[in-house]
Nucleic acid binder design. Structure first.
Lengths: 246, 246
DNA sequence: ATTGTCGTTTCACTCCATGGATTATTTATC
DNA sequence: GATAAATAATCCATGGAGTGAAACGACAAT
């Protein structure tokens, strides 16, 4: 249990997280057993959440409600580069014809902010809004390589040595490479999005199955990813530490 | 006060709504006065919300957190046509070079689901996730025109006669027109997105200032909007009443 | 008809959120 | 750099608000 956590709230959010995971309308009993709470309690919480439009009740079945859109839109505008990144991502996807990801870095953690799928149908089970690994993804490693030593020490998890060993190479190239580290048969390159002070705010990456992503393409895609990262930074009026929305 | 509403929850969500409105980091005191609650209470709620990643605390200032992304992504996938619509929206925007909106219809209410801005810089103060008027927007009227008489009676608000009077025309054309009704100097056309049973699930619209949207273009844009609505429907594997995500 | 399941409602109990007061910390002013 | 003002963070006695077992009603399957 966290330090200051109001029980009703953590319960309510565990229901929301449950609904977000399932992505399908669930009944009260299903939810109750999933979050391990009495039916009556879950029912009351759902009722209350529905009043806030955080969930949507459809004849006894519940799902995530439209309030989420409002909040996510606000979050995106706070991040600052989310909107500006859309066109850069589109370009990158069109240039590579592969799946591209946008990440945002918040308080030592990396989150999927957006993605554009490859036109080829290949499963990539990344989920927008989910937490991403700083150590296993190319985007994460590219981001870490641009942190100061002090910032590296403040990370929630300790930095593995083998990741730190890659930093000189990443800094020299400008992008990070991930060779089937995260997932077998998948290769990706990622670059950090830096603000005006050189601090990382997020990252971009291109991922593809190795059979479409041979070693000789690494350099090509690497440069494209860097170009995208740069254009995202430049496309934003201000990427100051306290970026406000217009 | 709603029927079954847990006080802590409605307070927590009023804080989230407040942060979403402001779109800038706020201090505890600012929030407390905005939502009219004691500072200590707001502080505790923020602390708890931060633990859930629903808000993000940055040195005494708080903003919406990344959990919103996860929830919104789930909501989009539940809606079913949100992802499929992206490419149809892009096409529509490129064809018209004007701002296009995507709406979702839920329980008698219309919500902004997505938008693509015109390359021309004209302010259109729509906010993704916000509620949209069923009676004043072309998209709303197009949607209403495709509802059955029984469904029309179940609407949260009573249908104005002048709106109902437009239905025959809208049904004949296949799209609805809004002549500066919603906002002076703004014209838009909208079409409903129907599922396999002919029930409306959402709508698409094109909006432009009248000086770029003369009467002779209404028919052209109207047909394009209809084409987009149709392609969104067809782009979705299943738009059944209980649409699940893959 | 019967049984089982699930959503909904009830209500007495008690636990937990409450908020005024206090302290710590940061920011502004001279 | 000392003082003051504002704000964030902490504490704790209190009672009202959330709790959940149980009962009810609706529906489906057998």
């Amino acid at each position: 249990m966290e330090s200051g956590s109001i029980r009703v709230l953590s319960r309510a959010f565990s229901i929301l997280n449950c609904l977000a995971r399932e992505r399908a309308p669930l009944g009260v009993s299903e939810i109750a057993s999933a979050v391990d709470l009495p039916k009556a309690t879950v029912y009351r919480l759902l009722d209350s959440l529905e009043g806030e439009r955080a969930v949507l009740g459809k004849g006894g079945r519940y799902e995530i409600g439209p309030l989420s859109l409002l909040l996510a839109d606000a979050y995106r505008s706070q991040v600052g580069f989310a909107d500006a990144a859309r066109s850069a991502l589109t370009t990158l996807r069109n240039e590579t014809k592969e799946t591209v990801h946008l990440f945002v870095y918040e308080r030592g953690e990396l989150y999927y902010l957006d993605k554009l799928e490859s036109p080829f149908q290949v499963r990539m089970h990344s989920r927008v809004g989910g937490r991403a690994s700083l150590f296993r993804l190319s985007a994460g490693k590219a981001l870490l390589a641009s942190l100061s030593p002090e910032e590296l020490k403040e990370l929630p998890e300790t930095l593995p040595d083998e990741v730190a060993a890659e930093f000189p190479e990443i800094r020299a190239r400008g992008y990070a490479l991930d060779d089937e580290l995260n997932e077998a048969g998948l290769r990706c390159v990622g670059a950090a999005i830096l603000d005006e002070k050189g601090r990382p705010r997020g990252a971009v990456s291109v991922s593809a199955p190795v059979y479409r992503f041979p070693p000789e393409k690494v350099e090509v895609y690497g440069l494209l990813v860097m170009k995208a990262a740069r254009s995202i930074r430049e496309g934003v009026a201000s990427l100051e530490t306290g970026s406000h929305a217009g």
